[in-house]
Every structure is written in C-alpha cells, then in structure tokens.
C-alpha cells in the first residue's frame, strides 16, 4: 500500500472535529472517526501525492508509526472511505 496511489472516495465527506475528523460515507452510510490530526492530513493529502508514503512524509508522520497508519488506512479502504487512485484520477 505504501507505494500505491490512493484518494478519498467521492462519496465521503470529512468533517473537522476537535479530535481529528469524522468521515461519513453517503453510499454505505458508514461513519468513522479519525482520531489523530496527522491521519486527517494523510487522508486529505492522498490525492495530492504520488503514493501513501509521500502523503505520510508530507503529514510529518514518523516512519516508526507508518505500520499503524497503514493498518488504519487499510481499515478505511475496507469501508470504502478511501480508494485506489486510477491513472485517470491522478490527472486532475
């Protein structure tokens, strides 16, 4: 996943919260709390960076914490909160 391009699903709205953000999927009606500001920055930055690794670096996440973040992103992917970015999607 680290070397793959991802992006926020188009059906997801991110609402800033004091603890991070709330992600709501209008399609499957799933709700997920993002409990760290750094994770919010990573998720918001996915579309702007070549891959997950670049988004983690840009958000200032220490490399030692990347496995935890990748697990969290995998959880978000399982809920369709984030999706693999296609080549078409990469050219905005």
């Amino acid at each position: 996943m680290l070397g793959e391009p991802w992006t926020l699903s188009p059906a997801v709205a991110l609402r800033p919260e004091p603890f991070g953000a709330m992600a709501y999927h209008f399609g499957n009606r799933k709700l997920t709390f993002l409990k760290r500001m750094e994770l919010v920055q990573v998720v918001r930055g996915l579309a702007d960076h070549a891959d997950v690794r670049a988004a983690l670096v840009a958000a200032g996440v220490p490399e030692a914490q990347w496995p935890g973040y990748v697990d969290a992103l995998a959880g978000l992917a399982a809920a369709d909160m984030i999706r693999p970015r296609t080549m078409e999607g990469a050219v905005a």
Binding site: K30, T32, F33, R36, L39, Q65
Partner: peptide
C-alpha cells in the same frame, strides 16, 4: 500507534 488508536468505526444503526 495502532489502527485502533487512529480510527474508530461507528454503527449508525
């Protein structure tokens, strides 16, 4: 830092 400390899924139902 674990997945559980980063995200929490909520059942709206």
């Amino acid at each position: 830092v674990t997945s559980e400390s980063l995200i929490e899924e909520v059942s709206i139902d």
